[in-house]
Simulated assay, not measured.
Amino acid sequence: MLSIFTTDDGDVRAEVINPDETPEELAEHEIRRCWLQVVIDVATREVLGWVISETADADHSMALLRMATRDKTKEKIRYGCKREPVPPPGLGLALADNGNATRNATVYGGQLGMGMTVMTGRAYQPMDKQVVERLFGTVQWQVLNFQPGYTGSRPGELTGYAPKASAKISHDDLYGTITRFFIDEYPFRPHYGTGMYGATPRQKREDAMTLYGPIDPPSQRERCLHLGVKVRATTTSEGVSAFKIPFNSTELQRFADGSSKTVTVHLDPDDLRKVYITAEGLNTVIEASLRMTVFKDLSLEEAIEIMEAATKANPTQRTLHERHLSEAMARRARESGFFPDSRDPASYQTIERLQRRADRLLQVEVRPPS
């Protein structure tokens, strides 16, 4: 594995590292290539979700679908947006290209489970997805090319300009700029695409709501079962543990009946307050609630980061209590001024990587107050 980084004078270098011994967090001056993934409403051109990630894969496509169907007030507050983001809708039809990020069993299964119709664009036919292609052009010319380090749309376009040496923007800064553009600017700009006739996306959404009405957003149960993450777990007297986070309910304990049973936990990485549990031979879906209230406002990645921070602060402790976790949260709040959001591209990772980080905490018990 290679670590790619820049020196203080802007030179790009690389060194060989051991992935088993090197921390996941980027060191100073390390760089990477990012993907911008977007989902929009074709009828109104409203942008429903956006994710910047290290790779284009099924995990990030599912994160994009979850963002499209949830409230985005968190992003509005964090990045100082002045307008209201588009409210969460239900999704009726999905049109995507042939990339492996969207054309895979995980994404198709989630979309079909939500009752969506799935369409796949033809290979090398940009007119099949012209609405999305046009949006990326708008973002490029009205947002990205004003940022230091912009490399141009093709190699050698910016003659005499050294983009790597000029880059001073962080991933979070870039995501904040794109967020403000999608919430504060793009919905209120006249659009001259097919069928828009100069109306703004927000005007088109209001017309669509008046003429046709909304598609109700999915419930938390649907989000967990179809767009969430599946974790195999074993029942105990304290419920089940997914990513070292405890969940329990009376219904779950009745099903376990004092014995260890293997179940599947369906978890929404953006909302940890409830999970839904299925098992072989079980005809109903069991609901279980979060047993560590300190995690109730956090995403899955934020919760793992808090546990890692608490573990580092208490290296001799084998049990993490609410007090340890609260102290870790307070310390991070003082140091950073806010908690990293799950959409922060500097921290958002694949579910497999989050699972590996959680597995490193196997020797540490996370104990609810009860």
Rank of each mutant, 00 (worst) to 15 (best):
Ala68Gly: 04
Ser61Asn: 09
His60Phe: 15
Val51Asn: 05
Met62Pro: 02
Leu65Trp: 02
Arg66Asn: 04
Val39Asn: 01
Val38Lys: 04
Ala56Lys: 09
Met62Arg: 01
Met67Ser: 01
Leu65Glu: 07
Ala43Gln: 13
Thr69Phe: 04
Ala58Trp: 01
Asp57Cys: 15
Trp50Ala: 14
Trp50Thr: 10
Leu65Ala: 10
Val42Cys: 10
Val47Trp: 11
Ile52Met: 14
Thr69Lys: 04
Leu64Gly: 01
Trp50Gln: 15
Met67Thr: 07
Thr55Gly: 13
Arg66Lys: 08
Ser53Gln: 14
Ile40Asn: 08
Glu46Thr: 05
Met62Lys: 03
Asp41Lys: 07
Val47Asn: 08
Thr44Asp: 07
His60Thr: 11
Glu54Ser: 13
Val38Arg: 01
Ile40Lys: 08
Trp50Tyr: 15
Val42Asp: 14
Asp59Asn: 09
Val47Asp: 07
Arg45Met: 05
Glu54Val: 13
Leu64Glu: 01
Val39His: 00
Asp59Leu: 08
Met67Ile: 02
Gly49Val: 06
Leu65His: 03
Gly49Trp: 01
Asp59Phe: 09
Thr55Arg: 15
Arg45Thr: 04
Thr44Ala: 08
Leu48Met: 07
Leu65Asp: 05
Ile52Arg: 09
Ser53Arg: 09
Val51Pro: 01
Thr69Asp: 05
Met67Ala: 02
Glu46His: 03
Val51His: 05
Asp41Val: 04
Val42His: 12
His60Asp: 13
Thr55Glu: 15
Ala56Leu: 06
Ser53Leu: 11
Ala58Tyr: 00
Leu64Ile: 02
Ile52Leu: 15
Arg45His: 07
Ala58Met: 06
His60Cys: 11
Ala56Asp: 12
Ala68Ile: 00
Asp57Ser: 15
Asp41Gly: 10
Val39Gln: 02
Val39Tyr: 00
Trp50Glu: 13
Leu64Arg: 00
Leu48Trp: 01
Ala43Trp: 09
Gly49Pro: 11
Thr44Tyr: 04
Asp41Ile: 04
Val51Tyr: 01
Arg66Glu: 05
His60Gly: 13
Ala63Gly: 10
His60Asn: 15
Ser61Arg: 03
Val47Gly: 08
Met62Gln: 02
Ile40Ser: 12
Trp50Val: 08
Leu64Trp: 00
Val39Pro: 00
